[in-house]
């Protein structure tokens, strides 16, 4: 079966700023494919090219077999798209929003109901409420229902979980997993590393380039250096000490913890604890850890050097 979304050397620049630099990848039919990267990495530009809103400067794309530049009319019937800033019509009710989006795609709520049933059923009790009065999670469900009501073949979701609480984010990803079971290809972007594990495959994107495309497990496993987690109340001091250590590959702050990677094949936690104690940080807890996608991302993003500026 042909790939659902194919990009070949896609290139887009705004003035002298390269938004997307020769990006190539392929998404299989029915796959839940994630683009993970920070703000400004080029995710939105990439999505806009794929949904036919922006014409690339170079390269080619195929979405469901159609060229977004030349066959955009036909393509627009087949895809679903949820833009990053998408916020529905606040002054229309839940049902009016859904009905409107069904109408402009030439369908009805009833015709698309079985696909959105599970999602829409959760907000249906509030169908007369204005969309502006919904909680963030409910808005998200309504937006997804609106993007799905015309049964698209490929669904593009640009940062659908940005600004949504943790519980709603988890629910949202559960919904995407169920949608994938319906055979819809889903391409989603997110700045949250932890969400990457919910995808079938993940592309790490940074400054308009892909740093790697693979399953989440394979990406995490590609981290080939020993990794230690360091917990101490004096994180900034510890970070400075670790980075100046002769065997250090990298040291990053990850929330409450520090992640330290060593250039050697093995490193004992006790050695690092001693190093810190010797530098006047005696109470650090150091233990070995398995690398996650975020570790790989940070590593690939910055190469082997650990610039002191980014803490």
């Amino acid at each position: 079966m042909a790939a659902s979304v194919v990009a070949t050397e896609l290139h887009k620049a705004y003035g002298s700023t390269v938004a997307l630099g020769r990006v190539s990848f392929a998404v299989e039919p029915g796959e839940l494919f994630g683009f993970v990267g920070p703000d400004g990495a080029g995710k939105t530009t990439l999505f806009r090219i794929l949904v036919s809103l922006v014409v690339p400067d170079g390269g080619e794309a195929r979405v469901d077999g159609l060229d977004p530049v030349r066959q955009y009319r036909e393509l627009r019937r087949r895809l679903g798209y949820m833009p990053g800033r998408f916020s529905l019509y606040q002054d229309l009710s839940v049902e009016e929003n859904l009905r409107f989006f069904a109408t402009i795609f030439g369908t009805t709520i009833e015709a698309g109901y079985d696909l959105i049933r599970e999602i829409y059923a959760q907000i249906e009790p509030f169908r007369d409420r204005r969309a502006g009065a919904l909680s963030g999670g409910m808005k998200q469900k309504l937006a997804l229902s609106c993007a799905l009501v015309h049964r698209p073949k490929v669904l593009f979701l640009d940062e659908p979980t940005t600004g949504v609480d943790a519980v709603s984010r988890r629910e949202f990803w559960d919904m995407l997993s169920r949608l994938r079971a319906e055979g819809i290809t889903i391409v989603v972007s997110t700045p949250y590393m932890d969400e990457a594990t919910r995808c079938d495959r993940v592309a790490l994107i940074q400054e308009g380039s892909l740093l790697g495309v693979d399953t989440p497990a394979a990406i995490a496993a590609s981290f080939d250096r020993p990794l230690l987690v360091v917990r101490t109340p004096r994180r900034l001091d510890a970070l400075r000490v670790l980075r100046s250590y002769e065997h250090a590959r990298s040291a990053w702050s990850f929330g409450e913890d520090l992640h330290y990677a060593d250039t050697r094949d093995r490193v004992e936690p006790a050695e690092i604890a001693r190093l810190l104690a010797g530098a006047g940080i005696p109470d650090a807890v150091v233990r070995p850890a398995t690398a996650g996608i975020e570790d790989v991302f940070m590593d690939r993003m910055h190469g082997t050097a650990a610039p002191g500026a980014a803490a």
């Binding site: 809103l53 009319r73 998408f86 606040q90 989006f101 795609f105 030439g106």
Partner: peptide, 13 residues
Amino acid sequence: ELGTMEVLLVSPL
């Protein structure tokens, strides 16, 4: 501003 224009444009309208 709402971002709905992007969806309208992507629709068959």
